[in-house]
């Protein structure tokens, strides 16, 4: 464990707490893409298949359970909660995210570290996470003004993987045979997808204006 990875995990956790706060406090999920939340639940369920077979640390196991649990709770809230589900932007959240799942799975079948069930699903989860934010970014552009908590959620979610990139660089130089090409390349793509969001987020913060994404 290193400070970059720990910061990344904490930033990721903060993004989830901010999203839970928004949904719980406002009893609304307007501006949140259910499709991105479903993709993230799939990412965690397929990435942590080793949850019960490999033990690294209490921290690692607890965080896996928190990520899996929170993503399922958020999907449940947006689908089933009698009040929250009414505020879901059903007609705006129309990204065909099944294509993202299929594309990631096909790529995982082609590019993986080892042709085993667990490794293919691990690679699938890495590729899927890189593009899982797309429905959310499209929804933000369509829904025009973005409320603060939603903006902060996306900001922290995008930032966490940037910390992981620093972690991979650090591990590359400190551990002789550390090479995580799949994670690194996907992580770079994932962070790059947030580039324009970060730009508009910074502009809105500098001018102290509401976050506006160009349609």
């Amino acid at each position: 464990m290193n400070i970059f990875r720990f910061s990344g995990d904490m930033t990721h956790l903060i993004s989830i707490l901010v999203l839970l706060l928004k949904i719980y406090a406002t009893k609304s999920c307007s501006g949140i893409s259910l499709k991105t939340q479903e993709l993230y639940a799939l990412v965690f369920l397929t990435r942590y298949l080793n949850l019960f077979t490999e033990f690294f640390s209490v921290y690692n196991t607890v965080m896996k359970l928190v990520f899996i649990g929170s993503s399922l709770v958020i999907v449940w809230y947006m689908r089933m909660h009698r009040v929250v589900k009414l505020s879901y932007d059903k007609e705006l959240d129309t990204f065909r995210h099944y294509f993202l799942v299929v594309a990631s799975f096909v790529l995982a079948l082609l590019v993986h570290e080892k042709f085993t069930f667990q490794e293919i699903f691990w690679a699938f989860s890495i590729y899927l996470e890189a593009i899982a934010i797309l429905p959310q970014l499209v929804l933000l552009q369509r829904s025009g003004n973005v409320d603060n908590l939603t903006g902060q959620y996306v900001f922290f979610l995008g930032s966490y993987r940037a910390f992981y990139i620093l972690n991979w660089i650090y591990r590359y130089f400190t551990e002789n045979h550390f090479a995580r090409l799949i994670s690194c390349i996907s992580g770079l793509v994932q962070t790059a997808l947030y580039a324009d969001f970060f730009y508009y987020y910074f502009i809105s913060w500098k001018n102290n204006k509401k976050l506006q994404l160009p349609a």
């Binding site: 995990d9 690294f56 690692n60």
Partner: peptide, 10 residues
């Protein structure tokens, strides 16, 4: 030897 290390990252 590029043994795939077990995935210790979240």
């Amino acid at each position: 030897t590029q043994q795939p290390q077990s995935h210790d990252e979240l």
